[in-house]
């Protein structure tokens, strides 16, 4: 195998492992643009994973194997709804009941992880030990939407056209989110709410509505990451450990990407690569267990570096994490 082959394989694997991160990050970007810092992504992704898998599993059991697109759609929808519901709790407690966002986010992380594991375990108990979907569906989830001849192009074929449906949908989400934030009036309003809610409020923008909508939709998108992990890399079975840490990496990645949806694309692939490097590129003098902490070390370095820069263009939304009460002005 040549070096280029190795690199291509590494990149493909990085994309596979990075796709859940991509969704998690995109959702959190939307949330944070509204000024809400939702630290519950970890829990949201657990819920998305469990409910997405549950949706597909029970759908197949009750209605027979759905067609390719329908199966992907069901997985996305179930995960989205689970995440949206979780974020609705977060929005209600922080925006309406005015609680501290940090602690509420942590509570959501604990709660969501619990709900996800609970639901996953319950499915396993009900099914008598093992929950998984048919091999046809597994092939659909890991397969790409493009025809074979495109994938046969040397080197770039598999890389560009051989990834799962979910990756391309994620790319679409990123582009749409970029256009929404930068090119539409509503996107501008949303950014205004995140930067300075008091100003947005005086301009007649409903701060509460924007915060709710952005957080709920953002949470839904983050949750999709959970089900993507389950159906692509975890082989369509539930495990309690696999997702742990992914949600937190997604939150860190938002900072790394400077709140830009398009940067999330390469950022998530880079972190996907860091997560699997220990399997693909073994280095003799680094033990595997130490190699595995690489993404976390890199995140720390990124956090430090991003706090060092003083560029005005590269700052978080100004109102991030701060509650807004009209009466308190």
């Amino acid at each position: 195998m040549t070096a280029i082959d190795t690199l291509v394989l590494l990149l493909i694997a990085a994309i596979t492992y990075g796709t859940p991160l991509l969704y998690g990050t995109l959702g959190e970007i939307l949330t944070e643009k509204s000024g809400n810092l939702n630290l519950g992504v970890e829990g949201i992704m657990f819920m998305g994973g469990a409910f997405g898998l549950g949706g597909v599993y029970y759908c197949e059991k009750l209605l027979g194997t759905p067609s390719g697109i329908a199966a992907v759609g069901i997985a996305l929808l179930c995960a989205f709804l689970a995440g949206a519901l979780a974020s609705l709790i977060f929005s209600f407690i922080t925006t309406t009941l005015r609680a501290n966002q940090n602690v509420t986010g942590l509570a959501l992380a604990i709660f969501g992880t619990g709900v996800g594991q609970f639901a996953g375990e319950m499915m396993r108990v009900r099914a008598g030990g093992y929950v998984t979907v048919s091999n046809e569906l597994k092939a659909v989830f890991t397969g790409s939407p493009f025809p074979q001849f495109l994938k046969d192009i040397p080197y770039v074929g598999q890389l560009l056209f051989g990834n799962s449906h979910f990756f391309y949908i994620g790319v679409l989400f990123a582009v749409l989110m970029h256009l929404f934030l930068k090119k539409t009036r509503r996107g501008l309003y949303l950014r205004a709410v995140g930067e300075n809610p008091a100003t947005a409020d005086s301009a007649g923008i409903s701060v509460t509505r924007y915060k709710y909508l952005a957080t709920v939709i953002g949470g839904g998108i983050s949750a999709i990451g959970g089900v993507v992990y389950i159906v692509t890399t975890a082989g369509c079975t539930w495990n309690n450990e696999g997702l742990s840490g992914v949600g937190w990496l997604a939150v860190a990645l938002v900072i790394f990407c400077l709140w830009r949806p398009l940067s999330a694309l390469w950022g998530s692939v880079l972190f996907g690569a860091l997560m699997i490097l220990y399997m693909r590129l073994q280095i003799a003098f680094i033990p595997t267990e130490l190699y595995k902490i690489l993404p976390y070390v890199v995140t720390v370095v990124v956090l430090i570096l991003s706090s060092l820069r003083n560029n005005k263009e590269k700052q978080p939304p100004e109102g991030l994490g701060l509650a807004y009460f009209r009466e308190d002005r």
């Binding site: 509420t104 709660f111 619990g114 709900v115 594991q117 309690n240």
Partner: peptide, 25 residues
């Protein structure tokens, strides 16, 4: 599943966080 304890702990936190609102307002 023992994860029920995480769920209840999460719910406890949600309720405690939410109830401060009724104490402050």
């Amino acid at each position: 599943p023992a994860a029920i304890s995480d769920i209840i702990i999460g719910l406890l936190l949600f309720c405690m966080l939410g109830c401060e609102f009724f104490i402050n307002y």
